[in-house]
């Protein structure tokens, strides 16, 4: 019989060992306690669930300016796309349908064109082809792509009314149900 096995068999010595482990565990828990605010993303902007969505100000094709943080209080979908990207093409009708279904309830969509990898003419043709009516800002120098650590197109960030990201979907195409269920979860937070 090994030493460990004889230790486990002995009720007194093993009981003392378990007690010791629990006491040490309790001390470790006490040492490592933190206030609740220290363990969340808090106010750090980062493109991740639970963190503040990185803010940006961009121009649309029509020359209007849009700022993400101005949309606090609304459910916002930030979708990064380019006209040459097949899954972006595939999911745009679903985004438009979700927008039409929920815009009256406080949904905003910012479909940011990766203009630095695209052309404005192709983006415009794309917008007309799909009859898109939501806001389409142009990322002309790749700032938003860097802020959102863009690795695959399309990438979609669901931003709640408090500006915190509630869901990240990398790649696509997303179905209309995927978009609408995530939007629904954000709209449920609205007063």
């Amino acid at each position: 019989m090994s030493k460990f096995e004889s230790l486990v068999r002995d009720p007194i010595r093993w009981g003392a060992t378990v007690l010791g482990v629990v006491v040490l565990g309790a001390i470790w828990i006490a040492v490592s306690q933190v206030p609740a605010s220290a363990t969340t993303g808090g106010a750090i902007p980062s493109p991740r669930e639970g963190f503040l969505a990185p803010d940006f100000t961009l121009e649309t094709l029509q020359g209007e300016t849009v700022t993400l943080s101005d949309l606090r209080g609304k459910a916002v979908v930030v979708n990064l796309w380019a006209s040459w990207c097949p899954p972006c093409r595939a999911e745009m009708p679903a985004l438009q349908a979700a927008y039409e279904a929920d815009r009256g309830r406080g949904l905003e969509i910012l479909a940011v064109d990766m203009t630095y990898q695209d052309t404005e003419q192709d983006a415009l043709r794309f917008i007309e082809e799909f009859g898109l009516t939501f806001t389409i800002p142009m990322d002309r120098d790749g700032t938003v792509a860097r802020q959102y650590l863009l690795r695959a197109l399309p990438s979609t960030f669901f931003v709640g009314p408090d500006g915190v990201i509630t869901k990240v979907v990398i790649g696509g195409p997303m179905s209309e149900a995927t978009i609408r269920t995530n939007v629904q979860a954000m709209l449920d937070e609205l007063p």
Binding site: A101, S175, E176, A177, R180, T181, Q184
Partner: peptide, 8 residues
């Protein structure tokens, strides 16, 4: 999210 899936 039954309502959404009933639509689609």
């Amino acid at each position: 999210f039954l309502e959404v899936y009933l639509d689609s």
